[in-house]
């Protein structure tokens, strides 16, 4: 489904942001539009607005994260929310407390929103069912990473002026990637054509049922692509057992400057990070003029501000 340009503006009604699969094209557009209007804050000399003053946000990270966690925290601070960071190590979880008990205890302190990153798919859904606070999924296993897809969509819009009609190639460890799943939902809902590629041993069964084309060679995926998104091999999730060596992997699926020439001349290169130079991408490509990798990171703050703002209900209060 593609958002009609003249469609009436969608209102945000959801308590949680659990995944892109639950969102309509109108809701995606609303988040991207809101992010665009909030991005100006990043450029101000004093990067802070009082929008979420008096709101409390807990960042509940059960898995290590540098980019996403910093990005959420900066977004929260720029909106003047009170934030608390909670990481799994050194917590009650080490003492045998269940996820739901930990969450109910935090809930008792009345936070407005909880941002959760967890290694198990569906962990944010478990919390969302039981907690009154808004729940934002900051990555649940190999399931979804909605804020990453939104910042990717925002970056594509910024660079290409549109999403509809573009060919987007996503290459790498498809099976273990939550980024790819959220991006597929977002890009197909917004009208892009998505091709995924990677070794057969890392390609989930029936991938085409997600509405994408599946390619088993990098060349086929790259041909005439407008956007190329490279993914890391997730060694910690067993991605490394799917092929014999990193050297052989790079020969088959690594993005070099020569191979990039198959894509459109104005193609952009994206990567959700963390990046492994010389494994899935050469430094030449990662640092070249095609690369928008650091702009993705910059846009992440605006997109997360937009989500916090919409979920907090601050826009509703302002309308009263």
């Amino acid at each position: 489904m593609v958002a009609e340009p003249n469609a009436p503006p969608t209102r945000w009604t959801k308590k949680d942001l659990l995944g892109i699969s639950d969102l309509s094209a109108g809701e995606i557009q609303l988040i991207l539009d809101t992010a665009l209007s909030l991005q100006a804050i990043d450029k101000r000399p004093i990067k802070k607005v009082p929008t979420l003053r008096g709101k409390t946000v807990i960042n509940l990270f059960f898995e290590s994260s540098t980019r996403t966690r910093s990005s959420f925290e900066i977004a929260e601070k720029r909106l003047s929310a009170d934030t608390l960071n909670f990481s799994a190590s050194g917590s009650a979880l080490d003492k045998g407390e269940s996820l739901i008990d930990t969450a109910l205890n935090l809930q008792a302190m009345a936070p407005d929103m909880i941002v959760i990153r967890h290694k198990h798919p569906g962990a944010p859904h478990l919390l969302a069912r039981r907690l009154a606070s808004g729940v934002i999924n900051a990555g649940d296993g190999a399931h979804e990473h909605p804020t990453q897809a939104l910042l990717d969509g925002f970056t594509i819009l910024q660079k290409k002026g549109r999403i509809a009609g573009l060919k987007v190639a996503i290459v790498g460890d498809i099976g273990h990637s939550r980024v790819v799943r959220s991006n597929i939902h977002l890009l197909t809902k917004m009208g892009a054509r998505v091709v995924v590629a990677g070794p057969r041993t890392l390609m989930p069964l029936e991938m085409e049922k997600m509405g994408v084309e599946v390619a088993y060679s990098l060349e086929e995926a790259l041909r005439d692509a407008d956007v190329v998104m490279m993914l890391r091999i997730q060694l910690e999730r067993g991605g490394g057992t799917a092929f014999p060596s990193v050297r052989e992997y790079f020969q088959m699926f690594g993005l070099s400057k020569e191979r990039l020439s198959l894509a459109k001349d104005d193609a952009i290169i994206m990567h959700p990070g963390p990046m492994n130079r010389g494994v899935e991408i050469s430094s030449e490509v990662a640092d070249g003029p095609w690369s928008v990798i650091l702009e993705q990171v910059a846009n992440g703050v605006a997109v997360r501000m937009a989500i916090l703002y919409l979920l907090s209900g601050a826009h509703e209060e302002g309308n009263r």
């Binding site: 798919p121 399931h143 799943r181 069964l205 029936e206 997600m210």
Partner: peptide, 15 residues
Amino acid sequence: HEGEWSTKLGLEGIP
């Protein structure tokens, strides 16, 4: 079960 839904949900499949 490994198939369309394990793929969509990112859960490990049992073929």
